[in-house]
Amino acid sequence: MELVVADIAVARGGLTVLEGVSFRLSSGQALVLRGPNGVGKTTLLRTLAGLQPAVGGTVNMAPESLCYGAHADGLKAVLTVAENLRFWAAIHGVDGVDDAMAQMNLTALRDRRAANLSAGQKRRLGLARLLVTGRPIWVLDEPTVSLDAASVQLFAGVLRGHLAAGGMALIATHIDLGLDEAAVLDLSPFKAALPKVARGGGFDEAFA
C-alpha cells in the first residue's frame, strides 16, 4: 500500500496557500511536515482528510483510509474516558478499546469523566482514539501539544508500533518526536505565488 500525493494545491479563505506539493509514503513510513506558522500545514492535512476540496493535484487514496487527528480532540466532557473511546470505536466498527487505553496509559483513568482530566491526559485520550479507528494512515496536526516528555515518548512508541504493523503517518509538528526513521518535508518552498495583479482594473474570477 502506498499513499501518493501528486502536485496538490490547497486554499484557505479562497486564496491558494500551497501548490505543487508531492510526496510518497509506503507502509511503515512516516513523514513529518515542517514549515513556519501559517504556511498551510493544517490546510494541507484537512484537504487530505477530505474536509475541504483541493484546488489542484491528485491523491491516490480515498479519505476513508485516512484518520485525521486535529488540534481539538473531539472529547465529550460528561462522558468517561472509556465511554469516549467506545463511541469512536463503535463509529468505526472496531474493537480494542481496552488495548488502546493500555497503550496510551489511560487504564487507571478509564472511569473518570473527560471533564476532570488534565490537558495532557485529554490529549492522550485524543490520541488513543487513533488506535480505535482501524485506519492505516494517521494524519496528525501537532499531536504532541500539551504532552509532557514522558507522554511524548509513550506516543512515539505507539506510533512506532503503528508503523511496524504496516501503517503510515503524516505528522505536522515542531517537536522532535525521536522518530529518526521519519522523512521530513519542509513546506516553505511550496508556498503559492500570489496571482498577478492585472493592471487597469482587469480581473477574473479570482478577483485579484
Partner: peptide, 16 residues
C-alpha cells in the same frame, strides 16, 4: 457543541 470540540470534523471524516 460538536463543532466547538472538534467532534464534527471527526464525524465528517468517519465512515458514517
Amino acid at each position: 457543541l460538536d463543532f466547538e470540540d472538534g467532534s464534527l470534523d471527526l464525524l465528517a471524516t468517519s465512515p458514517i
